[in-house]
Amino acid sequence: MEDLEEDQAIRDRLSAAIAKTGAKQVADRTGIPLGTLNKYLAKSSGASFANVVKIAEATGTDLGSLAGSNSKFGKIAVGMEGTSSARHDIVRLPRFDARASAGRGLVPVNDMPIGEVAFGRDFLRNLGANPEYCYILEARGDSMWPTIPDGALLIADASKTEVDDGRIYHFNVMDRALVKRARWSLDGKLYLTSDNTAAGYPPEEFTADRIDELRVGGRIMFTGHAPMPLR
């Protein structure tokens, strides 16, 4: 019952924020389809955390207020407003378009962020991440389903560029940005693999002669998404 009440409260606040700015303007600013925004406006559909972030930015609404301090999203998001001590305990992570590439193991300066999201430093540290090196990407596609569904908000740590077997990373291969699980073979080959084996995504193999094509943006430390439907 409590979860339903929290979900309804988020829908109410989303609807009010969209109505204040106008669904058409929010669609233009966020890239969220107008039909989806109209469902949020009518409170007939809940939003993913990624879309809550986009709507907060597009409407000039405080993310913490929009998500709600007691909701499942509010436990992740940290409001932009607060006391000076609260501000000291938060870090604003740059949010990049999913097509952002990485160079030398870091997000390059020529790929400008499209926004910022505030998170608690302790929250990031508890994930094992370095708050000063974290950034945000939005997942695209179903290659990592069910671990990472389409539209999930990802926190990556650019200080973690040593590729460990079995972990998920933001990789860049030439001009392609990928979120894949790393697998090492006994003969030293690196395979970028997808979790959605049923869809038939083949692993990509990297041997010594291809290593210059590969850059590591950072290790994926957190995946935020709305509850997934049954498939």
Rank of each mutant, 00 (worst) to 15 (best):
M1E: 12
D3A: 15
D7F: 10
A9Q: 12
A9G: 09
A9H: 05
I10E: 11
D12H: 10
D12Y: 08
S15W: 02
I18L: 00
G22V: 01
A23L: 07
K24C: 00
A27N: 08
T30S: 05
G31H: 03
I32V: 04
L34R: 13
L34N: 09
G35W: 08
K39N: 14
A42M: 06
S44A: 06
S44L: 07
S45Q: 15
A56Q: 08
A56T: 07
E57I: 15
T59W: 06
T61Q: 12
T61F: 05
S65E: 15
A67H: 08
S69M: 12
S69T: 15
S71C: 08
K72E: 15
F73A: 14
F73L: 11
G74V: 02
K75P: 00
G79Y: 03
R87G: 04
H88M: 04
F96R: 05
F96Q: 02
F96H: 09
F96D: 03
G103Y: 13
M112D: 13
M112F: 14
V117D: 08
A118L: 03
A118N: 04
F119W: 01
R121F: 01
D122K: 09
D122T: 10
R125G: 01
G128R: 00
A129Q: 00
E132K: 04
Y133T: 14
I136T: 04
L137Q: 01
E138P: 02
D142Y: 07
D142G: 01
W145R: 10
W145L: 07
A152W: 05
L153W: 08
I155Q: 02
A156Y: 03
A156M: 07
K160T: 07
E162L: 08
V163P: 00
G166K: 01
G166S: 00
H170D: 09
V173R: 11
V173D: 08
M174W: 06
D175H: 11
L178D: 01
K180E: 02
R181A: 06
R183W: 07
D187R: 12
Y191P: 01
Y191E: 05
T193V: 14
S194Q: 04
S194N: 03
D195Y: 06
D195K: 05
T197I: 14
A199N: 05
G200Q: 07
G200H: 05
Y201E: 01
Y201I: 04
E204T: 10
E205K: 08
R210F: 08
E213W: 13
R215Q: 14
F222K: 15
T223L: 09
T223K: 11
M228D: 10
P229I: 13
L230P: 14
L230I: 15
